[in-house]
Design a protein around this nucleic acid. Structure first.
Length: 293
DNA sequence: AAAGTCACCAACCGCGAGGTT
DNA sequence: AAACCTCGCGGTTGGTGACTT
């Protein structure tokens, strides 16, 4: 039954990696590619656990990693995403948070972002009087906590908890007309996460007027969505919030210039309309309501 | 200059989901 | 079907350098 353990812990090194170990790991992965972490240490001549090799590669040795300080834009992006994705209790994203945020920050790892959050952003938000966990004013969060209200997952920009009973929680999303759902349901695709490019997972929707659609579209960050077409020959840059799909945000600075949302199934031009963050484009996710028993 | 404190971040740990035998 | 493994995740720890007293 089963397989043998991934490594014999008694015979593995721990702690900081040496230059030689790094070189061996890089050379091996360059020659054989990623994966098979279990057998990699032995094959590469490393006295390390496969798990440790994977971590070292992903967090430090990968050639596409961006080293150095976070820019202000990255700061704000992390805060917005953290606010949007909430904590691990976020019901539809499960335990994912840092990895999703990392997916929107090319060259950054979840571990790096997590560390940065804990050391910089957390303090920054506290200095602004904002609770890092709930993204609400500290006083408000304290009050909510004392009333026994669980902290909002922070997805206020896109998700609103509208009703709670002792046994059922109903969470409503931006409404979409049911008739449109039915017409469009066979062509809609949704994006929830953006791991490295090249992977595409698309599942066709078959249900009519579903309460919750969890289809996934995994795609590279879409640069085109930073702009929208204003004329057949011209494009206008979107504000930071719209790039994140937070066009309803109070901070949105291009509100007045923005056209009405176009049905995402209107054809190939849809992508030029932008506003598609994690598939939370209004009208894309047909989460009219979801009940959690 | 030495001691204490703080900040950073690489690495470890434990867990859950999903796959394999 | 059950046992066991791999992978990938978030939380946490510990080493180290910078800064302050």
């Amino acid at each position: 039954m089963g397989r043998s353990p991934c490594c014999e812990k008694a015979h593995t090194n721990k702690g900081a990696w040496t230059k030689e170990e790094d070189d061996r790991l890089v050379a091996y992965i360059k020659a054989h590619g990623e994966g098979c972490w279990r057998s990699l240490p032995k094959a590469a001549g490393l006295l390390r656990c496969g798990k440790s090799c994977r971590l070292r590669w992903i967090n430090y040795l990968r050639p596409d990693l961006k080293r150095g300080n976070f820019s202000d834009d990255e700061d704000e992006l992390i805060i917005k995403l953290h606010s949007l994705l909430g904590n691990k209790t976020n019901f539809f994203l499960g335990g994912f948070r840092w990895s999703l945020i990392a997916g929107r920050l090319p060259g950054r790892t979840d571990n790096e972002i997590k560390n940065y959050w804990n050391t910089h952003i957390r303090r920054k938000l506290l200095n602004r009087g904002i609770d890092p966990a709930t993204h609400r004013p500290l006083s408000e969060s304290a009050q909510a906590g004392s009333e026994g209200t669980p902290p909002a997952a922070g997805a206020s920009a896109a998700v609103a908890t509208t009703a709670t009973t002792s046994s059922t929680t109903t969470i409503s999303f931006a409404a979409a007309a049911c008739s449109r759902d039915q017409e469009d349901s066979k062509t809609d695709v949704k994006s929830l996460a953006t791991p490295p490019p090249t992977v595409a997972v698309v599942k066709k929707e078959v249900e009519k007027c579903p309460d919750l659609n969890l289809e996934l579209r995994i795609s590279p960050p879409y640069q085109e969505q930073f702009y929208r077409e204003t004329t057949p020959s011209g494009k206008e840059e979107l504000c930071f919030d719209c790039r994140l799909g937070l066009e309803s945000s109070r901070d949105c600075s291009c509100r007045g210039r923005r056209p009405l949302m176009v049905s995402i199934s209107s054809g190939p031009k849809e992508s030029a309309a932008g506003f598609d963050f994690l598939g939370l484009k209004s009208g894309v996710l047909d989460y009219r309501s979801l009940e959690m028993k």
